[in-house]
Design a protein around this nucleic acid. Structure first.
Lengths: 221, 221
DNA sequence: TAGGATCCACTGGTGGATCCGT
DNA sequence: ACGGATCCACCAGTGGATCCTA
């Protein structure tokens, strides 16, 4: 692990035990508002606090050192209360996608996990920062994730997108990802015809993220 | 010419001799501001006043009747002070583009020209609406425009985009079209390689638009 | 409980054109 | 005079995720 990544981890450790609200105020950001309408705000605050520079149209939050930042809400037992979104799944070029060069693998190659604590009881501004973890998949973990990826991309590649439900995938699943139910994108059907469907993204199951936070080399289930 | 198009022309005629400011205020819109920062505002006001419904991602301003609205500023002699933007030129599929099915031909198939008068002397809110013209190209005009189109698309198709300057084209030229000089898009070079260049659009020369406003069947130069 | 649905901030691209230096 | 450069409004798409029923 190189020095820059260690420096980033050190900055994250410096935030431990502080509330999200305190971190926000230190950077001149407002922490609050209806939970439904501020879903992404805690993540944006931690990005700012840690100096994420990716902007949009980016592969990583910290492009120089290839690190992705993920804020993950834990309950009182230390268990994630939600799955973790990774990135969008491209539906129209599934045939040419391979795990080694995939967007999702690049995103997961090095992740800085920053837990927020008390997520099942407290509104997000009151939650406190937990122990951060700088994680890269072990070869074994990488292999399991590749299996989930191949399963999904294989289905889409042969036009069987109707069978692509969130039930598939041991650690990584695919679920809808859109602003609302009327958003549509295109994919290929079984006969090669273009069909309209909902955009989807890759998500890590809470079972997996919870396990790796306890043991970075974990292989649950 | 069908009844709906005639009805649109009648609505445009009802605006004659009124100032853009008066039309704007009638629709609750603000007419004013620095000329540099409100370049597209007169056009947007006339769209609203005439009930354009295309929204974005549209082929025409009035999709139901296939009519494109163009606001054109004339000086005291009745001569256009500017060229007229038509649409973007796609740089990456030039080989497959043909005049008959092109976006630019569809745009020009039926245009409602609405002149604004006094453009060389008055700030735009004070300009008055002139005599509108509902125009479709004659077969002869269509042929000249096709020639300009084929010239441009042919050059781009063989990767000679450096030779594509605004000097080309009898009535229709190609010029940069971007928010600022740093915007880039991609095109193919002479060896088939991808190169970065500025986005471009089709424009009608003022020589042509001025002539057709005086005589819809004109063939200047 | 977790699969399917949804919400906000931000931004790049498009459509409305005119500006302005050579 | 006009070829190249630029400006704003608007909107769809992406990245930040969590909400919420069955």
């Amino acid at each position: 692990m190189n020095a820059s990544r260690e420096a980033l981890l050190a900055r994250a450790r410096a935030l431990r035990s502080r509330t999200i609200r305190a971190v926000a105020e230190e950077h001149g950001l407002y922490a609050g508002g209806d939970a439904v309408r501020t879903k992404g705000t805690p993540g944006a605050i931690l990005e700012r606090a840690l100096g994420a520079t990716g902007g949009s149209s980016k592969v990583h939050d910290f492009p120089d050192i290839g690190v992705e930042l993920k804020t993950i809400p834990l309950d009182e037992r230390g268990v994630p209360i939600e799955s973790t979104y990774v990135c969008t799944l491209s539906l129209t070029d599934a045939e040419s996608q391979e795990w080694e060069t995939s967007w999702v693998r690049a995103k997961l190659a090095c992740v800085l996990w920053v837990p927020t604590l008390g997520a099942s009881e407290l509104p997000w501004p009151e939650r406190r920062i937990g122990e951060p973890l700088l994680w890269s998949p072990t070869p074994e973990q990488d292999g399991i994730l590749r299996g989930d990826f191949d399963d999904v991309v294989g289905l889409v590649g042969v036009g069987r997108i109707e069978e692509l439900t969130a039930h598939r995938g041991r650690w990584m699943q695919v679920r809808p990802k859109a602003a609302h139910g009327r958003v549509r994108t295109t994919a290929y059907g079984a006969d090669g015809e273009l069909i309209e469907t909902v955009p989807r993204g890759f998500y890590l199951r809470a079972k997996f993220t919870g396990a790796l936070l306890r043991d970075p080399k974990a292989t649950p289930d």
